[in-house]
Design a protein around this nucleic acid. Structure first.
Lengths: 165, 165
DNA sequence: CTAATAGGTTGTCATAAGCAACGCAATATC
DNA sequence: GATATTGCGTTGCTTATGACAACCTATTAG
């Protein structure tokens, strides 16, 4: 029984992946950020099978990431648009893209297009992880600190928490 | 043939998802950020099937996100550790987590643990997308601008590019 | 009124994931 | 120094999911 991403819903990432982690889902969201709104546009842009696309779009609507609405002028057309919840995925999309640009781009290969500030035309800066005090942090600067919902079961799985109090 | 995320490798996100988009992969990376290093720790933490875990770890090593090394003291043990390329996924992990905290957390539900600055103990600020000039940007502030590698085929798929020059 | 378009649904098949059992080498225990 | 245990997988079997192509329905265009 290949169940959806199973186990540890204690972690918010796991729950996020349950919502977005299926194949194609984030690529559909990316397309939505590019302004794609119609079934066939998604289908052609991605080359995805139509049944899978229908399934993913329905789940994204269900999840509240997209809305589904009939076009007022041509009632054959259905428009899928990002909700606030969907637009909040921008940092996810951008950070994935930036990782791809840094690590998955061929030597001397250009990008096909970029997001820019529509007002000033300037590009997007490298995303940074900062402390609440504004200090830039890398993975090496981090420690794990127990939170209110920490249980013994969870603690048992995370070495960094076993050591701490 | 359920091929790996097919079509559009013109987008760096697509290529990124090819590397990281399989089920479980990002959860394994998350665990690695939590300091998990051994096969059985991943397995117990995630509840993943052992054959699938073996497959994903091998692919992550292949991809250069993790290294695989024998433990010097106990040579039964194999240690999987993040590489620089893996550590560069921190913004991805954090932005996914933050989205989950905002949109997938139950009413009044606490988090089990958090990342903090190991020196000062302070938490992680909300990740922001900024222009190169430092101006915070939301999805509504963005436009798409053609890049050097833009082809007609790509342009045809993106409505926002069809309009532009 | 015939054809084309938009947005799906259905059916079949290959593949990927889940599960349990086994293998095998390196320690630990007696 | 034989036996058990731990750590890291692999193998075989079953089930669920994704790909592909064909079909369906409603709406609009000619």
């Amino acid at each position: 029984m290949p169940k959806r991403v199973a186990a540890p819903d204690y972690c918010l990432i796991a729950r996020t992946m349950e919502a977005l982690g299926e194949q194609w889902t984030l690529l559909i969201v990316r397309d939505a950020f590019f302004g794609i709104r119609h079934f066939d546009e998604f289908q052609k842009s991605l080359g995805i099978a139509r049944n899978v696309l229908a399934d993913r779009l329905a789940k994204l609507v269900d999840e509240g990431v997209l809305t589904r609405a009939q076009h007022p002028d041509d009632r054959r057309k259905v428009e899928y648009r990002l909700t606030d919840k969907g637009r909040d995925l921008l940092p996810v999309i951008i950070s994935l893209t930036q990782w791809g640009v840094k690590w998955k781009r061929g030597e001397g290969e250009g990008v096909p297009f970029r997001f820019v500030d529509r007002e000033t035309g300037s590009g997007i800066a490298r995303i940074e992880v900062r402390s609440t005090e504004g200090k830039p942090l890398t993975a090496r600067d981090l420690a794990i600190k127990p939170g209110p919902a920490l249980t013994d079961a969870i603690r048992a799985h995370i070495p960094a928490l076993r050591d701490s109090v």
